[in-house]
Simulated assay, not measured.
Amino acid sequence: MTRQQPHPKAGEIRALLEEGLNNRVIARRLDIDVRVVAQTRKDAGLPPAPRSSWTRRPHPKERTIRLLLSEGYTDTAIRERTGADVATIARMRTAGRFGPATIIRRPQRIHPKDAEIRALLRAGRSGNAVALELGVDRAAVRRIRAEAGIPTPPVQPLSLEEKWAAHTRMLEGGHREWTGERVGKSRTPVMRYREKSYSPFAIAFRQRTGRDPVGQAKAECDLHQCVAPEHVEDEPGRTRLREQLSLVMGRAPRKPRCRRGHDQAEHGRYSPDGVPYCQTCHDGETDP
């Protein structure tokens, strides 16, 4: 007659028996047949568990609690998930010899620009645009978007001009304010469209004239960084308007060459109030 092999959990059964637990509690805890526990108790020559061990009924979510304990959750985290009392969970941790928790939740630090990031995301800005404008990490922007439940904006469905219009606002006097992205210390308007950067001034100029600007396009009105197409000029347009202003104000026509001999047809410029000057001489005077 062959000798019966011991049960795979015989060691755990013996340990719980020695703690004084009854057969049904041990069977439920180890997920085995109660008859296996009874036979192990008999083979070990241990007496039945005292009646006092039957007075405490198992928690309705005992298996879930034990699973979370085995995964390393804290008592507080398990309470939040199961609704069980912390004292009950602590007792089960000790009885089951689970040891200290390994999954520790540390409080999330609030990003210094959390409010600004959320505001731009809610305005429909992409994560990359927000990160570039505020100088923050893209991962932080993604995390804050997920925390706030703000959906990712759809792939750009607008044309270049439509997106430009969506980031401008009409003001009194025919001016138009740029409400989109700005860069640098001077807060220069910029627009990103399909992985490229565009000047809102150049877009405004092209809308009015149907061509790309020559040189830098910018506003010639009294509103700083106005992007109204009617107020934006390129370099030849600015020179023409300022020359007309100079003549209206009674100034003498610009000389063909400056005092240093530079051709003013090529190097000549006018200040906003119509005063002529040589760009080459001006740059030389301002160089360090």
Score class of each variant (00 low, 15 high):
residue 1 M to S: 13
residue 9 K to L: 14
residue 11 G to T: 15
residue 12 E to H: 12
residue 20 G to R: 11
residue 21 L to F: 14
residue 24 R to N: 09
residue 28 R to F: 03
residue 34 V to A: 12
residue 35 R to E: 11
residue 40 T to S: 01
residue 40 T to W: 07
residue 44 A to N: 07
residue 48 P to F: 09
residue 49 A to M: 03
residue 50 P to A: 04
residue 50 P to F: 01
residue 52 S to M: 04
residue 53 S to T: 11
residue 54 W to G: 03
residue 57 R to N: 08
residue 58 P to Y: 03
residue 63 R to I: 04
residue 64 T to F: 08
residue 66 R to S: 02
residue 71 E to D: 03
residue 74 T to A: 07
residue 74 T to L: 07
residue 80 E to S: 14
residue 80 E to Q: 14
residue 89 I to S: 11
residue 94 T to H: 11
residue 97 R to C: 03
residue 97 R to H: 13
residue 98 F to P: 00
residue 100 P to L: 04
residue 101 A to W: 05
residue 102 T to I: 04
residue 105 R to N: 03
residue 110 I to L: 07
residue 119 A to W: 12
residue 119 A to L: 12
residue 120 L to A: 06
residue 125 R to V: 07
residue 125 R to E: 15
residue 129 A to W: 01
residue 134 L to D: 12
residue 136 V to N: 08
residue 140 A to Q: 05
residue 143 R to E: 12
residue 144 I to L: 13
residue 144 I to S: 01
residue 147 E to T: 02
residue 148 A to W: 04
residue 150 I to W: 04
residue 155 V to K: 11
residue 158 L to C: 01
residue 159 S to K: 06
residue 162 E to M: 06
residue 166 A to P: 00
residue 168 T to C: 14
residue 169 R to A: 15
residue 171 L to Q: 15
residue 178 W to Q: 06
residue 180 G to Y: 01
residue 190 V to R: 07
residue 191 M to G: 06
residue 198 Y to T: 01
residue 204 A to P: 06
residue 208 R to D: 05
residue 209 T to L: 13
residue 214 V to D: 09
residue 217 A to F: 08
residue 219 A to E: 10
residue 219 A to S: 15
residue 225 Q to I: 00
residue 226 C to M: 04
residue 231 H to P: 02
residue 232 V to G: 05
residue 233 E to A: 15
residue 235 E to C: 03
residue 240 R to P: 00
residue 241 L to H: 07
residue 247 L to H: 08
residue 252 A to P: 00
residue 255 K to N: 05
residue 258 C to W: 02
residue 261 G to P: 01
residue 262 H to K: 08
residue 263 D to Y: 05
residue 267 H to D: 12
residue 268 G to R: 08
residue 269 R to M: 14
residue 272 P to W: 11
residue 274 G to L: 06
residue 277 Y to D: 09
residue 277 Y to E: 09
residue 277 Y to K: 11
residue 278 C to F: 03
residue 282 H to K: 10
residue 283 D to W: 13
residue 285 E to I: 01
